[in-house]
Simulated scan of single mutants.
Amino acid sequence: MHIGVLTVTLSLPGCRSLKEKRQRMGGLHERFGRNPAVAVCESADHDRLDASEWTFVVAATSPQKVESLCSQIEDKLQRTVDGRVLEVSRELL
């Protein structure tokens, strides 16, 4: 079993409320948490309106599958979230 940790920091310019922040994040937990190989949580910046940090823990049978899932998550975030990706870090455990 191979495990990867993907952490993504997002900027949400112009966000005025926590409700708007939740709407702009577009249900990341529900969307990515459906996959049994992925665990997801908002890992920092809970109360900040203009930023959000999310961590995805990915488990797979090979490092290549872990990297592939992390790439898919990162690509989908860039396409669907109403914000800017500021930083991405990956760690293979």
Rank of each mutant, 00 (worst) to 15 (best):
G27E: 08
Q23H: 12
A51Q: 02
G14T: 05
V88E: 04
L77T: 02
M25Y: 02
R34G: 06
C15Y: 05
L69N: 04
G27W: 04
L10N: 03
L12P: 03
R90W: 08
K21D: 08
G26K: 09
M25F: 07
S71G: 15
R79E: 15
S62N: 14
G14I: 05
V88M: 03
V57Y: 08
G14A: 06
E87G: 04
R22P: 11
R31V: 09
G27T: 03
L10V: 07
A44W: 01
S62L: 13
S71K: 09
G27C: 07
R31A: 11
F56Y: 12
R79A: 14
L12Q: 04
V81W: 05
D50Q: 08
G83D: 02
G27V: 06
T55I: 01
D75I: 03
S62Y: 13
G33K: 01
K76Y: 04
H2F: 15
S52N: 01
K19Q: 11
S43P: 06
V85T: 02
W54K: 00
L93Y: 14
A39Q: 10
W54E: 01
R31W: 12
D50Y: 03
R31M: 09
T55C: 05
L18P: 11
D82L: 13
C41R: 05
V38Q: 03
R48M: 04
A51G: 00
D75H: 07
F56I: 00
